[in-house]
Design a protein around this nucleic acid. Structure first.
Lengths: 151, 151
DNA sequence: CGAATATATTTCGACATCGAAACATTCGAC
DNA sequence: GTCGAATGTTTCGATGTCGAAATATATTCG
């Protein structure tokens, strides 16, 4: 997978790492998400929302935005779809009626409780291509890289 | 950014690396793609297509699928949009009329020739948070991780 | 040749995603 | 208390993304 880009050494090195980083994520998701869809009819975003609610309890939509790192309009859409499927419920905050509080339904709780261990086991299996040291190393590098100070 | 997941040590380690990997890609793209959109009116996929055509010359849509790692129906959509914007042109292969050959227009060539160096410079700047050794290390780990043998 | 099969692309329906604009509600200043 | 700014959410329009089904063309084999 050559880079094709004629640039400085520094650019070639950075671009090479960047491409491999992106491809690794694509490859992992390509092996995870179809399972999630077929077995639990869940998308990645839906899993993210359910997981946040499962571990943190009812949340405002704005809080969900921060948790899953998506825009407000996107959270509206994802929660719409989850609500239609009966996995979550929306409720207006009594004291501040601008706020929508989202919480799991019983069905939603059952689904995420069942899906999560399976999903995590699959992730663990895929990450098993790296040694434990390498996994730690990768986490460290990604964390350093992702700490956005604005560019 | 705690993991919240109660699992084995191996699961916690894998999940932690996985989450940081995903977030780093989100963070980088979050700093790259808005620029690309504002300055050149290009999406990530459009850039991928234009770059492939720029470096490899005219390609069949099926070949584009492999280059940008997306489904056939997606490539149809992305090429539709590029064609509508006058950046690429489609042409039926003369000997096998099932095949669509996609190539840059003069305008498309100008746009990608201008956008690519700017984009690469930005990537290089962002990757500069890591030393050159760390960039190589990251590339190596991601490559190993992404080498999908089917899961 | 002609039918079955294979290959390349498009269409369709669903979901994700963003930013901008609209809307609803609350808060702050006067 | 009311009006304007701030905050939380939704709507809208555009693009991306997938898989399944449809379509178009080519190939193979009897």
């Amino acid at each position: 997978m050559p880079t094709h880009y004629q640039g400085t050494e520094g650019e070639k090195r950075a671009l090479d790492a960047f491409i491999k980083l992106n491809r690794s994520v694509s490859a992992l998701n390509g092996q995870l998400l179809p399972h999630l869809q077929r077995e639990f009819s869940l998308t990645e975003s839906q899993l993210g929302v359910l997981e946040a609610l499962y571990h943190l309890g009812p949340l405002q939509q704005g809080q969900l935005c921060q948790k899953i790192l998506r825009s407000g309009s996107n959270v509206t859409t994802v929660v719409d779809n989850l609500e239609r499927g009966g996995l979550v419920r929306r409720e207006r905050d009594a004291t501040d009626r601008r706020i929508q509080i989202v919480q799991l339904t019983e069905h939603g709780r059952k689904v995420i409780a069942e899906a999560l261990p399976v999903h995590v086991a699959r992730i663990t299996a895929l990450l098993g291509r790296l040694s434990t040291d390498e996994q730690d190393q990768l986490g460290r590098l990604c964390k350093k890289l992702g700490s956005a100070e604005k560019g």
